[in-house]
Structure formats: structure tokens, C-alpha cells
């Protein structure tokens, strides 16, 4: 059953004078409209009965004390939240500072490491990759003088880095009769082994 909209407007006082007169005439002639009007009036009466409901005083009496308690709790919470916020902010700042400081220290170490590496490269051409002791330096095409000089340099490096004495170095080189000069040593060492030896020397020196 659809509600006639004019009934609602009529009871709510939303009809103009003319509209009201016209509707009242319509109402007097229609049983259906009268029934709907009674329906809405009964509903409005029911609503009026629920306007002033009597309840126990307890709830309303306790309303203010409850509010005061809640306010006090909120103040405490605000205080502790403030402290937590301050501590969190301070911690975050500290972490950031540590991170930045650590980064700066690492940046300082890097140039020192680079300097130490460059000292280890025997060749005057310091940009060359010194990871391999293969014929990159053209040892196989060297003359005797050059080979002897390289020999001496290598020996002094080995003594220094491996903590050997000239005698022990001599002993090592005489183990194999075919070894002894840098040319022979190099021929017996493959690229991988050469890289490994070089990196060990480098690593030992830096750390």
C-alpha cells in the first residue's frame, strides 16, 4: 500500500492554503485517504509517547563523574604519548646520525685502501689491472736485465709480504730446479692461481 504523499505534507503543515483546502475536500470524498490519514496520525501518536521516556536516574547521575574520569585518563594518556613520541623521535635521529657517520668513516677508509693498492702495483702504469700475473706485463718478451730486475723486486715483495728470510726464499726456489727465475715461476702459475696469490697479498697487507 503506497503512502499518499499529500497526507504527510498535510500533517506536516507543508501544504499552502489552497492546497490544504483542496486536499481536505479530496479527503472527505475518499475512504482510502481517510484510512491512510488515520494510519499516519496513529504513528505520530506512538512517536509522541516515546518523546519523554522515564528511565532510572542512575545513568544520568553518573554521566558527569564518568566524564571526569575519562578526562583524567585522557590527560595521562596524552602525557605518556608525549614522552613516547619524544623518545621515538630522539631514537630515529640517533639512528640516522649513526648511519651518516658510519658512511663518512667508510668513505675515509676507501682512499687509504686505494693508495695502498697502488703502492703494490710494481708497474709504472698504475691503472692496469694487477689481478693477473700472466704476460700482461710482457715478462716473456723481457731481456735478461729486465728479468733480473723484476726478479729482485718480486723477491723483495715475497720476503716482505710472506715474512720470509732471503735464505728461506732461496730454499723454496731451489725445490724445483726448473724454477728460480720469474719467467719459470710465471709459466708454472695459471691465471687463476696468480689472481689468488695477488689478492691474498693485497688482503694481508690491508687488513
Amino acid at each position: 500500500m503506497k503512502m499518499n504523499i499529500k497526507i504527510i505534507l498535510y500533517l506536516d503543515g507543508q501544504l499552502t492554503g489552497e492546497e490544504r483546502t483542496a486536499f481536505e475536500k479530496e479527503l472527505s470524498e475518499s475512504k482510502y485517504l481517510k484510512e491512510q490519514l488515520i494510519r499516519v496520525k496513529n504513528f505520530n501518536t506512538g512517536v509522541s509517547e516515546l518523546k519523554n521516556i522515564t528511565v532510572g536516574d542512575d545513568y544520568f547521575v553518573q554521566m558527569i563523574p564518568k566524564f571526569r574520569n575519562k578526562k583524567a585518563q585522557k590527560r595521562k594518556l596524552r602525557f605518556f604519548s608525549g614522552i613516547t613520541y619524544s623518545v621515538s623521535t630522539a631514537t630515529a635521529v640517533l639512528i640516522v646520525m649513526l648511519f651518516v657517520t658510519n658512511k663518512n668513516i667508510k668513505n675515509d677508509i676507501q682512499p687509504v685502501q686505494n693508495n695502498m693498492v697502488s703502492e703494490r702495483i710494481v708497474n709504472n702504469e698504475t691503472n692496469q689491472d694487477a689481478g693477473s700475473l700472466s704476460d700482461q706485463f710482457g715478462f716473456l718478451n723481457m731481456n735478461q736485465e729486465e728479468i733480473a730486475s723484476s726478479d729482485n723486486l718480486l723477491n723483495s715483495m715475497l720476503i716482505r709480504e710472506l715474512d720470509l728470510t732471503p735464505q728461506s726464499l732461496n730454499d723454496i726456489s731451489q725445490i724445483d730446479n726448473n724454477s728460480g727465475d720469474i719467467q719459470t715461476i710465471l709459466q708454472g702459475v695459471n691465471d687463476k692461481e696468480a689472481d689468488a696469490i695477488y689478492n691474498q697479498i693485497l688482503h694481508k697487507k690491508i687488513l
Binding site: M1, K2, M3, I8, L9, D12, Q14, R39, V40, F43
Partner: peptide, 17 residues
């Protein structure tokens, strides 16, 4: 507001029905 009230009443009466 008048429109809101009217629609509210209409729906309420239909639901009650």
C-alpha cells in the same frame, strides 16, 4: 530539510506497513 522529512516519513510508513 522538508524533502528529507517527507522521504523519511514515507519510508517509515512503508516499513511499518
Amino acid at each position: 530539510l522538508k524533502a528529507n522529512y517527507f522521504h523519511a516519513m514515507k519510508k517509515i510508513m512503508e516499513h511499518m506497513n
